Computed example of a mutant assay.
Amino acid sequence: MKIAVLVPCYNEELTIGKVVEDFKRELPEADIYVYDNNSKDNTSKIAEEKGAIVVKEYRQGKGNVVRSMFRDIDADIYIMVDGDDTYPAEAARDMIQPIIDGEADMVIGDRLSNGTYFQENKRPFHDFGNNLVKGLIGLLFKNEIRDIMTGYRAFNRYFVKTMPVLSDGFQIETEMSIHALDKKFLLKEIPIDYRDRPEGSESKLSTFKDGYRVLSALGSLFKNYKPMAFFGIVTLVSFLLGLLVGVPVIFEFVKTSFVSKVPSAILAVGFMVIAILSLVCGVILDTIVKNNKMNYELYLTRYKDLSIKK
């Protein structure tokens, strides 16, 4: 089997050399690809000196890097890992084994189960963000994935070549998790150790800016994957607000045959119109999404048939 280690990088000259060396030691048969995302330091030079295949990605953002990696690289097994030396190369064999055994299409390196993430991570808001996104996805998509946003993952070719990457930034991990859940890919989590960045190495993840982007992406993905639930919530809220504003107007009309609260009446009608339109949008989009799912299932079947024939 051809194994590819995918390392998206941006200004990681302090750690990229060790990352490449570690994975060469643990997976000597693998090709290691370092995609340099406009680094302003010696990331590319060091990676190349250590024996990695270096590719430039000029569109800024981790999602753009992953999109290019998935499109360009042909392999049977893929391992994606950050270039900041926070994930152990020693876990690589354990990560790819479920792929080899056919037990998983995507393996998730779970940083949270064994407690090392909470011991090593020095950014408390990152803990809060991880738990918030994990809780929201668990609520909205009914799953038990423990580490939604880990950057350490393994995939088979089937997943990589059928995954539509739409995100351009750090939302990519959330997008991959939701896509895999929605399309019923086989998932497995492997507990891994986590270590914080070495001194002098700075995270490119902005707690609040990128946190907002992840939450926005989660809302957008919820709307796209489950439109009936999304617009159902809008319908329910609008309907309840319409009742709250409109019931006093109705009581007044029943008692006096006259409406003095004209603005309230107009507002109530507006809320009810929004509720009806949202319900109609939800029904229409839900039908479209179900048809797209059927077409995607047929596409996956054709892809497997073509892969078998090859």
Rank of each mutant, 00 (worst) to 15 (best):
M1L: 08
A4M: 02
Y10P: 08
N11W: 02
V20Q: 06
F23C: 06
K24D: 03
R25S: 11
P28S: 02
E29I: 09
E29D: 14
D31A: 12
N38P: 10
S39M: 01
K40P: 06
T43F: 00
K45R: 15
I46L: 03
A47E: 00
G51Q: 06
A52E: 04
K56I: 03
K56N: 13
Y58S: 15
N64T: 07
V65N: 03
V66Q: 02
D72F: 03
D74K: 09
Y78T: 04
I79D: 01
M80L: 14
D82A: 10
A92M: 05
Q97G: 11
P98C: 03
I99K: 00
A104T: 06
V107C: 02
L112K: 07
N121W: 12
H126S: 15
L132P: 08
G135Y: 13
L136V: 10
F141A: 09
R146C: 13
M149G: 13
Y152L: 08
R153N: 13
N156W: 05
N156S: 10
Y158Q: 14
K161I: 14
M163F: 13
P164R: 11
S167R: 01
D168S: 15
D168V: 14
G169S: 12
I172H: 04
E175N: 02
M176A: 11
L187R: 07
E189V: 04
D196A: 08
K204M: 14
L215K: 07
L218M: 15
L221A: 04
K223V: 06
M228C: 11
M228N: 13
L236Y: 09
S238R: 02
F239E: 09
L240H: 10
L240E: 10
L243G: 06
V245E: 05
P248Y: 04
V249R: 00
F251V: 12
F253Y: 12
V254E: 08
P263M: 00
A265P: 00
A265D: 01
G270Y: 01
G270L: 00
F271V: 00
V273M: 03
I276R: 04
I284K: 14
I288A: 13
K293H: 14
M294N: 15
N295A: 14
N295R: 15
Y299M: 12
L300H: 04
L300A: 05
K304F: 03
